[in-house]
Amino acid sequence: MGTRHRDEGVTMAERPLVVPNPNDPRLTRRLKGLDQDRQPVLSDVVVERPLTLYLNGQEIVTMMTIGDYPECLAVGYLLNQNMLLAGDRISGIDYDEEVETVVVRTERVTNYEQKLSRKVLTSGCAQGTLFGDVLEKFREVKLDRTAVLHTRWLKTLLREIGTLPSLYLVAGAIHGCALCAGDAVILYMEDVGRHNAVDKIAGYMFLNGIAPHDKIFYTTGRLTSEMVIKTVQMQIPILISRSGVTAWGVELAERAGLTLIGRARGRRFLVLAGSERVIFDADAGEDAGA
């Protein structure tokens, strides 16, 4: 297994839409409880499970995750921590559900003992981490200046994301992230931590050769510094959330030339960085007033 070709010239209609499977019995559990009227009820809750990631025999991290798309999560985590490089060739990915481990093997010899000692605890739920050299690489990334977001796309995307199969609708306690091209959703991933959902998408993109330069990233979670850094690491030029933003997230977005849009709900949104990519045409076209 190796690096795939980028997807220039491939239409998104040719790619299958990847979404969570709310009917997967491994992802939720039905528990007994009492409601506000002290009546017994059965409620679906999300199952968290540990997943220990190894890179070429070296233990990297143990993540708490819902357990779907473990290979994508592993590869995306390594990419977003600069432990897996864009030119690396993956020789194998071994996932063992019984012992809750995933091993990524590369042709390049790796040793991250020193790097692993430089962790930064982030504001991400489920205690996300970044390593010391991530911000150094962040400063080197150049995002595509020709990418655009038509505001008429935004309403379509938000409506489509709201109708996708979702664990959140079944059990809550979940964050969702989507990769979009124009007004179409390509991938939608969920997990207990939004950083896990981001990493799943990063891993899927790498394994399937999806180019990032013209894509749009959407998340249900707040736009913190961690979310901005990961999006820039993935070289996606536009980041949207239905939630709010942090001041450092905006500052980092401005430094990187990332278009940052928060509080996107219905017709409302707030552009806080990179407004030059936004084409305000929501009132144009036959769908804009629907």
Rank of each mutant, 00 (worst) to 15 (best):
2 G>L: 11
3 T>G: 01
8 E>M: 10
9 G>R: 02
9 G>Y: 08
10 V>M: 08
12 M>A: 06
13 A>Y: 10
18 V>A: 04
20 P>C: 03
21 N>D: 15
23 N>L: 09
35 D>R: 00
36 Q>S: 14
39 Q>S: 06
43 S>G: 02
52 T>G: 05
54 Y>P: 08
57 G>S: 11
57 G>T: 01
63 M>D: 12
63 M>T: 03
66 I>D: 01
69 Y>Q: 13
70 P>C: 05
71 E>M: 02
74 A>D: 00
75 V>N: 09
76 G>D: 08
79 L>G: 00
83 M>G: 00
86 A>I: 13
94 D>I: 01
96 D>Y: 05
101 T>P: 12
106 T>L: 15
110 T>V: 12
116 L>R: 01
116 L>G: 04
121 L>C: 07
125 C>Y: 11
129 T>Y: 15
129 T>C: 07
129 T>R: 07
130 L>F: 14
132 G>H: 08
137 K>L: 06
145 R>L: 03
148 V>P: 09
152 R>I: 09
154 L>G: 08
162 G>E: 13
167 L>D: 13
172 G>K: 07
173 A>T: 13
177 C>Y: 03
177 C>K: 13
177 C>L: 04
179 L>I: 10
183 D>Q: 11
183 D>L: 03
187 L>F: 05
187 L>Q: 12
190 E>M: 05
193 G>Y: 08
194 R>S: 11
196 N>R: 14
199 D>N: 14
206 F>E: 04
210 I>C: 10
212 P>H: 12
213 H>E: 15
216 I>G: 13
217 F>H: 08
220 T>G: 15
226 E>N: 03
230 K>S: 15
231 T>R: 09
233 Q>D: 06
240 I>T: 13
248 W>V: 12
249 G>Y: 03
250 V>E: 15
250 V>S: 01
253 A>P: 10
255 R>Y: 08
256 A>L: 10
257 G>V: 09
257 G>T: 11
258 L>P: 03
262 G>L: 03
264 A>D: 14
264 A>W: 07
269 F>G: 00
273 A>V: 07
275 S>R: 14
277 R>T: 10
277 R>K: 14
278 V>A: 11
279 I>R: 14
283 D>A: 12
284 A>F: 08
289 G>E: 15
